[in-house]
């Protein structure tokens, strides 16, 4: 993770220190505060919690993007999810505490820092991660099997999330809000409506399970990050998203996030969960995934040109939507797999 040692806002750091003392006693303090520069919807700080001779590296996440039709679930639900996932042995950064009104830190929480690498090019190319790559299908199969087995009743706080209710309608509502016309999206939505797979199991989904959101070391996946898009839905959606061409980072024949082909991943999931992966349904969710990824890029560009949060990266998102549209149409034509 890229970090910047110098620019942690002083007001936030002092309020965070007070929040930490409320929970860990007046002798607790912060050290080595740095700002993580990546992340679309949160301010993220890393810091050491110092308690006597003991030190723990922790992560502060504070919501920065809150508009109508946000695709991100609120921090309180994210925190509940982390707690739930940890309880079911899904690897996540351990939840430490949530902000309370008296902390004056708005909405967010603190979790344990998991050290490792998230940068796709390094994970997919560096010889140092060869063993992690070899373990990828079995490990992902096992993790997703555990996640998808979480009893729905324990995750029903996500039932009203738009993506849980009607995933296609959720994307179109957002697109209409951003005010852009995208014929490629509309064409794909017509295809989705006319080819909808039979309804399957309904599960808790991470919702953004992909290369880039996996914290890994030389032995494999250490934690699933970024739970802002979690919702309830068809478990095949998770595979469609992971296999999206956009997450292969140049390893185009390795459909599963650039790490491996589809087959070993599907076999590992079936072995761990007892549920077969329906390749046709995954294809449908892949087409849906392109639609969703386009709408997310339109959102980032909208945030830029409306002035809500400007940056060169968000500006580039606007001009990248046509690249995703191209991959989508080539997939619909059967030229890309």
């Amino acid at each position: 993770m890229n970090t910047q040692a110098s620019a942690a806002p002083a007001g936030i750091v002092s309020r965070l220190e007070l929040a930490v003392r409320r929970r860990f006693g007046n002798s607790a303090s912060l050290a080595n505060v740095s700002v993580a520069t990546l992340g679309g919807s949160n301010r993220t700080l890393l810091f050491d919690l110092v308690e006597g001779a003991a030190r723990r590296r922790l992560v502060f996440r504070q919501e920065t993007y809150r508009l109508a039709h946000s695709p991100f679930i609120e921090p309180h639900l994210q925190y509940q999810l982390l707690t739930l996932a940890a309880r079911h042995e899904v690897p996540v950064p351990a939840p430490i505490f949530e902000f309370a009104p008296e902390d004056e830190l708005d909405r967010g929480y603190v979790v344990a820092c998991v050290e490792g690498e998230t940068l796709p090019r390094r994970l997919l190319g560096d010889p140092r991660f060869a063993e992690a790559r070899a373990r990828f299908p079995a490990q992902v199969g096992g993790i997703l099997a555990r996640l998808h087995r979480v009893p729905l009743g324990e995750a029903d706080f996500l039932a009203d999330v738009p993506d849980s209710r009607d995933p296609i309608a959720a994307q179109l509502e957002r697109l209409d809000y951003y005010g852009e016309a995208h014929p490629a999206v509309e064409l794909a939505v017509r295809w989705l409506v006319r080819h909808a797979p039979a309804s399957r199991r309904r599960c808790l989904l991470h919702g953004d399970f992909r290369t880039g959101n996996l914290m890994m070391d030389e032995t494999g996946i250490r934690a699933l990050l970024d739970w802002e898009c979690a919702h309830l839905g068809d478990p095949m959606e998770e595979f469609g998203w992971l296999c999206l061409r956009s997450w292969r980072f140049g390893m185009l024949d390795q459909a599963a996030g650039g790490f491996c082909a589809r087959e070993p991943l599907y076999a590992a999931y079936a072995a761990a969960s007892g549920e077969e992966v329906d390749a046709e349904a995954v294809h449908w969710w892949e087409v849906f995934g392109f639609v969703r990824w386009i709408v997310l890029n339109v959102m980032q560009a909208h945030g830029h040109w409306t002035g809500v949060r400007r940056s060169p990266a968000f500006a580039a998102c606007g001009r990248n939507t046509c690249l995703i549209e191209y991959d989508l149409l080539m997939t619909l034509l059967g030229r890309y797999r």
């Binding site: 016309a181 014929p183 490629a184 064409l187 017509r190 046509c322 191209y326 149409l329 034509l333």
Partner: peptide, 27 residues
């Protein structure tokens, strides 16, 4: 805008191949 609206209404379903070709050319 017009093309997107007609697609959403399903009014181009009967011309699927032509619609796909046209949208691909634009993209």
């Amino acid at each position: 805008g017009e093309l997107a609206a007609r697609l959403r209404e399903g009014r181009l379903d009967a011309h699927w191949d032509a619609a796909l070709e046209s949208v691909l050319r634009q993209v």
